[in-house]
Design a binder for these strands. Structure first.
Lengths: 226, 226
DNA sequence: AAGAAGATTTTGGTATACCAAAACCTGTTG
DNA sequence: CAACAGGTTTTGGTATACCAAAATCTTCTT
């Protein structure tokens, strides 16, 4: 019973399962739960001081996001997808992001554009600070802002799901990017094209950006010798 | 207790929640559960002779698919999205399907192509039979076969999710399509381009096909005066 | 008669108990 | 000593009990 003893009142605004899912997600991304590890709902629930029911639901949420895999009648595992599978997901993510950029050029309000620019600026300032995680999260926020600017809720939601699924691997690549300055340049190019509402240029810039991502991931897998 | 009395043994191959979800999905698509209706987990669970736990999970599955919406501390509802939201989803579906076609041109095996052709043939034969539902399901199978031919599992899965979400509305439009023969022509065009592995032509054919879908949906909303 | 305050019911969220299948341990046997 | 059979433990799946928030109904007041 290492968990917090105070029993939260039911029907909270942000549900308990989501809170648990957030917790587990952080554990996975931070590496406390390594890929391939078992997630036993009894133990984890006890450790967090909650019952199995919300823990179950939290695990389902993460399974939906692709961070854990469910096996029939067996403990769920932290996902450990092979390179090909991740590459496939990156392809889809790229398509979603290009669609986002394209739609944003057509439908984004000035407010949307301003928000994207603001996040890009913030990314630039946090880029050289020590907090890698904060910088990375701002990076993700940049892409999320573009998806939001598409003014297509379904697209933004699906994009968010893919981003979550690739979160960990992107975090791993972000700390070993050979030329980290390229990221800044690429973001600048995307932002520039977006502000001009140049659909072709946006597509090209995103192609470049996520193309290097695929290459980075490949390198990561090679050095890890998975 | 109108449900079947035999208690199925746990750990079945196809889990109970999925089975319940299938049941509910059919009820929604067939119109037994109309959009906007409440889904009370207690009542529905009792009606199907299962407990609330698997019913809950089934409802989450459908929520994930977008067929039902969850409200905090309230009964889930059968989704009843406004036109704009559905239009947004169709835009994403179109993008996914164009990506599928594009990748299929590059990576599909001959077997994949044969399967697509087989489904297209089957659709043509069932098209004029009385069973609208069977014909419609074959139509959906055609699009699923293309997604499978992309050889991208993530893409196929996301595509499947969107297809499920739009299942009902597409079923409704399929029975009021003004010129039903166009569908056959459009499918033929898609198949033709696909077999030639002509990426541009596939994209164009899919644009046409799903363009008419959007128009059909718009008409449906106008006549329904939602 | 209309509105508000309080009691009751309904309902989803959570905790817990029980079951069977899978995994694990152990003692026996060839 | 290896391999297998049996029982024990572990674990996820399901059912059920309980709780509090929301909704609904009741009744009292104006």
């Amino acid at each position: 019973m290492a968990g917090n003893p105070e029993r939260p009142s039911p029907m909270a605004e942000h549900s308990l399962p989501e809170h648990i899912a957030d917790e587990l997600r952080r554990d996975i991304l931070r590496g406390k739960l390594v890929p391939g590890a078992q997630i036993k709902e009894r133990d984890n629930a006890a450790e967090m001081g909650v019952s199995r029911t919300p823990m179950r639901e939290a695990i389902r949420i993460l399974a939906q996001e692709g961070l854990v895999v469910l096996r029939p009648a067996r403990s769920p595992l932290v996902a450990d997808p092979p390179f090909d599978e991740i590459a496939d997901q990156v392809v889809v993510l790229l398509a979603l992001e290009k669609l986002s950029g394209d739609l944003a050029c057509q439908h984004a309000t000035q407010d949307d554009m301003d928000r994207v620019r603001a996040v890009a600026d913030r990314f630039e300032t946090t880029f050289y600070t020590a907090d890698r995680l904060a910088s990375f999260e701002t990076d993700m926020e940049f892409h999320t802002a573009i998806a939001a600017a598409s003014r297509n809720r379904a697209l933004a939601e699906t994009h968010r799901a893919y981003l979550a699924r690739l979160w960990r691997i992107r975090y791993l690549t972000s700390r070993r990017r050979r030329n980290r300055a390229t990221v800044l340049d690429q973001h600048a190019a995307i932002l520039d094209a977006l502000l001009k509402r140049d659909r072709v240029a946006v597509g090209a810039a995103l192609d470049t950006h996520l193309g290097t991502l695929t290459e980075d991931i490949r390198q990561l897998f090679i050095t890890e010798e998975t």
